[in-house]
Design a protein around this nucleic acid. Structure first.
Length: 123
RNA sequence: GGAGAGGGUCAGAUGAUCGCCGGCGGAAUUUAUCCGCCGGAGGAAAGUCCGGGCUCCACAGGGCAGGAUGGUCGCUAACGGCGACCGGAGGCAACUUCAGGGAAAGUGCCACAGAAAAUAUACCGCCCGGGGCUUUAAGCCUCGAGGUAAGGGUGAAAAGGCGAGGUAAGAGCUCACCGCUUUUCCGGUGACGGAAAAGGCAGGGUAAACCCCAUCCGGAGCAAGACCAAAUAGGAGAACGUUUAAGGGCUGCCCGCCUGAUGUUCUCGGGUAGAGUCGCUAGAGGCGCAAGGCAACUUACGUCCCAGAUGAAUGAUCAUCACCACGCCCCGGGUAACCGGGACGCGGGACAGAACCCGGCUUAUGAUCCUCUCUCCUG
RNA sequence: UGGGGCGUCGUCAAGCGGUAAGACACAAGAUUUUGGUUCUUGCAUCCGGAGGUUCGAAUCCUCCCGCCCCAG
């Protein structure tokens, strides 16, 4: 209950809200619920940390560092601005980009991710 | 105008909203918060191809093996880099390019073809001599541990080239010119260049084949390495006693060096854990200017502080203005193709992301400017 | 990020200066009523790419491209 004393800005995305440990990624992959769309795959798993957290995985096969950074930034931006779309409660979400992902604009990525997440929530 | 050659510069700008990382200051419930200010990717950050700093491994040691480089002189912390020059090759030229030492230390290889691929074992041919046949000259056949490298054919390459003399036929056998080798002189720090004389043709190619010569190189790498609260075990250090050589480390091997094993006592407490800490950014630093030098570069002075992330920040969206391409319209010139200017619409903006830090090389890539060469047209 | 290795036919691969073996697969033909089996023949001309050394490079050298492995 330490976390409740901290008041943060709504649209931020900082280290607290990231999945940063390799071991945590492993347990999410083992215990989480997988679903995928055309270019992305999400894995959702509940946590005990008291915050929504996001982890991003982009394979080296996707492209060079510039392309990978671009995709990661788009996903981060989507998380930052659309936290309400993510499942309620304290969850860890890992978004993986598939290796065939084309150079997307923000609107395209946003539409696809929103569809993927709302489909999950409704089910 | 066309075709080229060399070099330089930049890497869209501004604003708004929402965010990220670091530093400083302040506030709070003094440590995952908030507010303010400042800073926040590149010319290649890339490939990891070289060289260094730095850290640890003895104090960085000796030999062998192994690796790298290879015209000369210089620059540099160092280099396989850079600059200037020399020589070869390419280009009409600007200019480019070359792992550019040694084949007379030795060994190997040169497939196929060809007589022969390096000690010329002469296939055809040419010439000479002996014998035989036809027999006028001459021709044909055969023999010769005879001569001959001029000609033919083979090959990537055939034993200096070419011309003349000479000869039985030929041959550097002799001569002229060219090439080569040696010697001497001159110029240059040197690579080398020039001149003269002599020799009389030796010495096929390949060293990115082994090798020889000269010079250089110890190994690993910031995931190096160092440190940290509390609790206990494994442990670590020091002293003393016993024992004296197996094993381990330093380099692939040898030498050499370091370290022992066990018992008692005393002292100290950390690994593979962690939103851990340091290393972590002031440096062979940037910019300006002056002097020296053909230049690479060096020196002096002034000035500036300019990213430090760690599942890894430096972004997203919108608007405006510049830039470029295309379409269409208008204006001017022109018979026309087209050229110049303007407005509108639509599209584009390359290659690419620091990971300890520097010096290079290589590769990817958008725009723009300057200088030079050749050629065409007009005057 | 650092360190190491490999690219030869559709696949597995040998060859390491002198015509690029072999197996499976594929294609055509023969045998068979048909299929299978068996037999015969064919199938690399750009040895990942570019440049160089050499008379001659899959092979030697240099630079790129792609793939794989190891280290927290």
């Amino acid at each position: 209950m330490v976390i409740q004393s901290v008041c943060m800005k709504e649209q931020s995305y900082r280290k607290l809200e990231r999945v940063t440990k390799r071991s945590r990624f492993r347990t999410i992959y083992q215990q989480g619920v997988w679903s995928s769309s055309r270019h992305f795959t999400t894995v959702i798993c509940s946590n005990t940390q008291g915050v929504k957290r996001l982890g991003i995985t982009v394979t080296k096969k996707t492209g060079n560092a510039v392309k990978r950074n671009r995709i990661k930034r788009l996903i981060r931006e989507f998380f930052r601005l659309n936290k309400a779309l993510f499942p309620a409660g304290y969850n860890d979400v890992v978004i993986m980009a598939k290796k065939t992902v084309p150079p997307l604009t923000y609107q395209e990525a946003c539409r696809e991710l929103a569809e993927l997440l709302t489909r999950k929530v409704n089910r």
